[in-house]
């Protein structure tokens, strides 16, 4: 039986982890590779790096981080942030990433997702959607949640899946950083309307929130940053909570 995936996410800027935790024994807690090794040892199911480097002319830094990580840990790695063209995707894949998350560039030019999926394979294209509630529906936001697009999230997710996205990474901007839990209504709406897996993201504050994301949000995977970064919970504790709630997880 397929297991529910638990995915820790690291925000990386200029090659350094932002908001990282001081795990004991870490020589350099700001080094994404060191953090990746910790998550690997804890049994994370996948890893996600989000490059939040402000400048786009510094792509080599994230490539170096990815290639050093891929030499150390043997697990699926998703990388997102600042991906603008097929060359960016190729470079990240060649550095050792397995999946590439596309966000603003997809909104700017939806055909880009088609092109990327055709050239690199659906399985490595993740469309990241930043969603903000507006009345009874949700709007797609870009540029780190600063710019509205006027696009409906559910329609957008369906279109992206149709264009070849192998997976949807869905972040609630309303919940992100609040620790109030996923926007379950949003997650369920999107997960139930697309045939590809949906990763729930944004708002995790407790282990129960992870369980809710799957049970009530119908997500295939759950992503969290701060609860793992700050050492509040380990991946093993997350797995145990999900197991106790009756969800299939890796042992």
């Amino acid at each position: 039986m397929l297991k529910t995936r638990i995915i820790p996410c690291l925000d990386v800027s200029e090659g350094r982890v932002v908001k990282g935790v001081n795990f004991v024994d870490l020589v350099d807690a700001g080094d994404p590779v060191e953090q990746a090794k910790v998550y690997n040892d804890q049994g994370a199911d996948e890893l996600c790096f989000l490059d939040i480097t402000a400048t786009s002319d510094n792509r080599d830094t994230i490539l170096d981080v990815v290639s050093r990580t891929a030499e150390e840990v043997f697990m699926p790695l998703t990388v997102g942030g600042g991906v603008r063209g097929v060359d960016d995707i190729r470079n990240l894949l060649n550095a050792g990433a397995d999946k590439i998350a596309i966000n603003s560039a997809a909104v700017k030019n939806p055909e880009f997702v088609k092109e990327a999926a055709n050239k690199c394979g659906n399985q490595c294209i993740v469309v990241a959607i930043d969603a903000k509630r507006s009345g009874d529906s949700w709007e797609v936001f870009t540029h780190g949640g600063r710019e509205g697009s006027g696009i409906d999230v559910v329609e957008w997710a369906q279109r992206m899946a149709e264009y070849g996205a192998g997976e949807i990474l869905l972040t609630s901007m309303d919940r992100d950083g609040t620790k109030k839990g996923f926007d379950l209504e949003l997650t369920r709406k999107v997960a139930d309307s697309v045939s590809v897996p949906v990763i729930a993201s944004g708002g995790v504050g407790t282990l129960d929130h992870l369980v809710d994301g799957v049970k009530e949000g119908h997500a295939s995977a759950v992503l969290a940053a701060s609860i793992f970064h700050f050492g509040e919970y380990t991946i093993a504790q997350a797995r145990q909570a999900m197991d106790e709630a009756g969800l299939a997880v890796r042992t």
């Binding site: 039986m1 659906n122 997976e167 045939s195």
Partner: peptide, 11 residues
């Protein structure tokens, strides 16, 4: 209800 691709860890 099962998603395609079959993506993730399985025994």
């Amino acid at each position: 209800e099962l998603k395609i691709p079959h993506m993730g860890w399985n025994a």
